[in-house]
Write a protein that binds this DNA or RNA. Sequence first.
DNA 1: ATGATCTTGAACATTCTTGTTCGATTTAGG
DNA 2: CCTAAATCGAACAAGAATGTTCAAGATCAT
Lengths: 206, 206
Amino acid sequence: MTTSPARPQRADARRNVESILDAATATLARDPDASINEIAKAAGVGRVTLYGHFENRGVLVAAVVARAMQDSEASLRDVDLSGDPAAALVRLIEATWQVTLRYGALVVAAEKSLPAADLAAAHDQPRARVERLLEHGRDAGRFRSDLPVSWLVTTMHTVTHAAATSVYAGELPADQGAGAIAATMLGLLTPPGQVVPGLDELRTVR
Amino acid sequence: MTTSPARPQRADARRNVESILDAATATLARDPDASINEIAKAAGVGRVTLYGHFENRGVLVAAVVARAMQDSEASLRDVDLSGDPAAALVRLIEATWQVTLRYGALVVAAEKSLPAADLAAAHDQPRARVERLLEHGRDAGRFRSDLPVSWLVTTMHTVTHAAATSVYAGELPADQGAGAIAATMLGLLTPPGQVVPGLDELRTVR
DNA sequence: ATGATCTTGAACATTCTTGTTCGATTTAGG
DNA sequence: CCTAAATCGAACAAGAATGTTCAAGATCAT
């Protein structure tokens, strides 16, 4: 009896590429230092196959990031920003939260193997969108005007990232993240004399 | 003339240990993944000497963290928390900012080589202090009461860490960090109908 | 069925980091 | 002056990760 040392399959090339991209996204989102071996194993694919589709680690990460950026931008672009600025902000936070949960620490992985310039451009577009919304709310008298808008955007991203970290650490249920972020931002944005809307669901947070 | 391939010195053991601890602190604060080689070079010391004083990487990191925690706790313990809660918070933020700038990403390095239990205990004490201050301010009517205190503390730490990252990235001057954090927290904490104090210096931030 | 395509594990070279060993050298202290 | 402590660079072994090569097996289209 001859033992079969290898059991290769033919499968579909495009299908495998998808598997690898999916697995790489999920794996790198949790651990930006994950090895190629881990990613290949998660994709249910040999390491050689992976290298057959992606020249090296940098190329793979770049492909993952490109796909994630496309998806993120589409998600955020679809958010309805009309109507009451506070409600619009909550919708935008909800969408941002989903994207952050999905892609987590992928930014860190990107920073380690990609030129910094590419990343900066990726951040500018959604950032400008948030800025416009905040400016609109400020002009409409719904948001306070005594803090610089750019700092507010930075704060929002920071708080979002912190919430995601809490979720990964098991400190915060994933479905409470958006509520916590929204409450914080609305608390920060609502000017003196106005009521901060919808804080009730935050009572139980950590 | 005989070339001297090695030029060892006797020096003082305690002195070298100090150099190594200082260099390790500074190096790991910027790059938590810094190699032993980098640390030894930064300390102006051979790698062998370093291993002579610290059994392995874990022991070195533990020593660095222990020293940093002692220093941090002392700095934060000395902050005067009496008087107006808002002013006290600004003082506390200032002290926290200095500590964060000094020790930066050292937490990350610690998380990679130390048992998680040690870190948790280290965070609890200063955290409880901030919580007490916020509760006091809330009871005194100076801080808003519609956001959970524990979430506010998390937000404050998060914003502080974000500001430090901005400084390391060269986006924010180090001396504007505390002002930015204070403005954000006071904006978040000041209840409707009260004026947020001291926001003028924030106009130029990022 | 036959050839092109895709996959496989095993094995290998390379590089990096950790940690150790060694002989040689300097210096503080008695 | 002499010894013990402390240092040095160089060299080595071990381990992990990256990337390549190879021969063998599976599958699809024609």
